[in-house]
Design a protein around this nucleic acid. Sequence first.
DNA 1: GAAAGTAGTTTCCTTTGAGAAACTAAGTTG
DNA 2: CAACTTAGTTTCTCAAAGGAAACTACTTTC
Lengths: 127, 127
Amino acid sequence: MKKKVFIDQKPLQCPSQLRAIHDTMDILSGKWKITIIGCLSFGDKRFMDLMREVKGIGSKMLSKELQELEINGLISRTVQPTKPVTVEYALTTYGETLRPILWEMADWGQHHRIKVKATFSGEVGSG
Amino acid sequence: MKKKVFIDQKPLQCPSQLRAIHDTMDILSGKWKITIIGCLSFGDKRFMDLMREVKGIGSKMLSKELQELEINGLISRTVQPTKPVTVEYALTTYGETLRPILWEMADWGQHHRIKVKATFSGEVGSG
DNA sequence: GAAAGTAGTTTCCTTTGAGAAACTAAGTTG
DNA sequence: CAACTTAGTTTCTCAAAGGAAACTACTTTC
């Protein structure tokens, strides 16, 4: 019986690798995290800026997602001594280390969308 | 005001890129999908093999996760004409295209774990 | 002192995800 | 025909995720 080894690399499932993938997934999971990171990759933003730019989010979820991103060191939260106080959120250098993952996912997702479209238009009542 | 541009690359948030990332996340989300993919990257498996190897999963979730992976073309399901019938699940060539993403995530997650450990042991009661 | 803007928090509610256990269905062995 | 195996499905239940709206707290403007 042949062994599938993910092309020419070692398979996953060494438990530490799977655990690491799950850690990463947990950090990026949540309905708005990716969008917020994308939004902050454009430039620093205040709470109300994010409320306006992240379409559909409510203040509770924005607050919660920002807290989780900050806890994981992906974004920074800086209270500005303006009047009234404003809070500036920014992607940290550490947050930027997610870039390779995000680009791989964007790439795969784009190909997948094309593939799904092709699959559905290619099926001519065969199933 | 300086613009954060994710090091030297264009920022994300072109809506199509964010959508693509979310598509990918959706496909990989679910408590057991990563583990199942990892398990199948070792070699083809039958339903009961997966039940035994994926510690803690129940038949309902295994069945559901396998269906979703199959719908997205990541795994194949083959009924073998044995007696009693057995069903063999295998990672498809398309499923293997996830490899770059999974390795990036494993890599990042491993570094993150190290970083978190360093952060906690390095904080000497500084608040 | 009422209205408006900043940055959230709290409460209440609905939806979704997940698990345990029982059950279906088909074939095999004794 | 009872017990066992494979491959699931169904039901019931609980926990977590998420959303709408109201509310807090502080400050400025009118």
